[in-house]
Computed example of a mutant assay.
Amino acid sequence: MGEQKRKESSNNEFIFGKKNYKFMLIGLGFIALGFILMSGGGSDDPNVFDPSIFSWRRIRLAPALVLIGFGIQVYAILLNPNKDSKS
């Protein structure tokens, strides 16, 4: 009898709500964009220095986007999906 109730209560229930998953995808997008902006700038010849690795985009913007993405992920995990936003 106890097993029957457990099966009924755990049927099609996710840990997070739809809103949580939406914020998680947004956070993953920020993180992916940050890593994409960080990439590149290398030189084919190891004897030639390429100063483009110190550009504003790679030093400031991309790490900021990654950190914002991690912040959004933390918010998505802590967001209460059962809380009614209308009240």
Results as ranks from 00 to 15, higher is better:
residue 4 Q to G: 09
residue 5 K to S: 12
residue 5 K to G: 10
residue 7 K to R: 15
residue 9 S to L: 15
residue 10 S to L: 15
residue 10 S to C: 14
residue 12 N to M: 15
residue 13 E to M: 14
residue 13 E to H: 15
residue 15 I to T: 15
residue 16 F to H: 13
residue 16 F to P: 04
residue 17 G to K: 06
residue 19 K to C: 09
residue 19 K to A: 14
residue 22 K to F: 15
residue 22 K to Q: 13
residue 24 M to L: 15
residue 24 M to H: 06
residue 25 L to C: 11
residue 31 I to E: 02
residue 32 A to I: 14
residue 32 A to M: 11
residue 35 F to V: 03
residue 35 F to T: 03
residue 37 L to R: 01
residue 40 G to H: 04
residue 44 D to M: 08
residue 44 D to L: 08
residue 48 V to C: 07
residue 51 P to M: 10
residue 51 P to E: 07
residue 53 I to W: 12
residue 53 I to C: 12
residue 54 F to L: 15
residue 55 S to A: 11
residue 58 R to F: 02
residue 60 R to F: 13
residue 63 P to M: 07
residue 64 A to M: 13
residue 64 A to C: 11
residue 67 L to C: 11
residue 67 L to V: 12
residue 68 I to M: 01
residue 68 I to N: 00
residue 69 G to H: 00
residue 70 F to L: 13
residue 70 F to C: 09
residue 71 G to V: 00
residue 73 Q to T: 04
residue 74 V to H: 01
residue 76 A to S: 14
residue 76 A to F: 03
residue 76 A to Q: 02
residue 78 L to Q: 07
residue 78 L to W: 03
residue 79 L to F: 08
residue 81 P to V: 08
residue 82 N to S: 12
residue 82 N to V: 08
residue 83 K to C: 07
residue 84 D to A: 11
residue 86 K to M: 10
residue 86 K to A: 12
residue 87 S to F: 13
